[in-house]
């Protein structure tokens, strides 16, 4: 994520790369479904240990594919420092304190944290909701997240074709936020008899997730600007904040 800023200083290009990254995150999520489908269709499960083995195979295969792509990334990515020299940016080290003095750092940090919180916590509870609350078919446990990923992928692709400014980032973030508010309210009051409506809601959840995530990550790019030597700290610290907050939110919810 922080390397995106080293590749280009252009704000539109940075948003395009953030949306491209989001689209491929969805591809990665969907590929796990393909792996699971292959494993479940090629192996038989009659006992508890057979099912355990199937899940072991899904885990090993996905880890192996992930490692292959890490290898491709490390071997195939050119050193971004070469491009920084073209832009004429200095190598002067930026202190951590520099970011703490910026109001925008706290604003972007909170926005990113809240966005990831909405996305991650909702994903964590999705399976329980469709099975335990809505009493939907077991296939819904896989189908609903898949619909979310597909709609999120499509929106991420569309977002690559647009021209981006700061105001547009704010507007599209708010559009995603409004969608999530309506989706959240629908989920909160959805009766069991209308459980099929969850498939429609999941389309809008996917759209809202893509809008908020891409613009939220792009706001970090705006914060970094041309201070490229500090971008790893910005992305690292905000991602840390997001992970801690998600853990705390699930802990608090589970305590009920």
């Amino acid at each position: 994520m922080s390397m995106v800023n080293c590749i280009s200083l252009n704000s539109t290009s940075r948003v395009v790369m953030a949306s491209c990254r989001n689209a491929f995150t969805m591809v990665a999520n969907l590929s796990l479904y393909a792996v699971a489908l292959v494993v479940f269709s090629t192996t038989k499960s009659t006992t508890h240990s057979d099912i355990e083995n199937q899940y072991h195979w899904i885990a090993y295969t996905s880890i192996f594919i992930g490692c292959c792509f890490v290898g491709v990334f490390h071997l195939g990515t050119k050193e971004p420092r070469l491009k920084i020299r073209v832009h004429g940016t200095s190598y002067a080290r930026i202190s951590w304190a520099y970011w703490f003095k910026k109001v925008l750092y706290y604003q972007v940090g909170l926005v990113y944290m809240l966005t990831r919180l909405a996305q991650n916590v909702s994903q964590a509870y999705l399976a329980f909701y469709v099975i335990e609350d809505m009493r939907m078919a077991k296939s819904a446990k896989a189908l609903v997240p898949a619909i979310i990923y597909i709609s999120s992928f499509i929106v991420s692709i569309i977002m690559q074709e647009m021209y981006w400014t700061g105001q547009r980032l704010k507007a599209y973030y708010c559009a995603g936020g409004v969608l999530w508010v309506f989706c959240g309210a629908s989920i909160l009051f959805l009766p069991q008899s209308l459980s099929a409506f969850m498939y429609v809601i999941s389309v809008f959840i996917g759209i809202a997730n893509a809008l908020m995530t891409v613009t939220g990550v792009s706001m970090q790019s705006v914060l970094v600007g041309s201070d490229l030597n500090g971008c790893a700290f910005v992305y690292g610290s905000l991602s840390f904040l997001d992970k801690v907050s998600c853990g705390l939110a699930v802990f608090v919810l589970q305590s009920f």
């Binding site: 926005v111 509870y125 959240g184 309210a185 909160l188 919810l253 589970q254």
Partner: peptide, 27 residues
Amino acid sequence: SVTRYGLGLLPAVCSLAGMAITYTMKL
């Protein structure tokens, strides 16, 4: 139930808070 709060209420509140902060930002 807790799943409804986790999937419905929390994301909605987070989105509202996010939008409010975005409004104060100077991008």
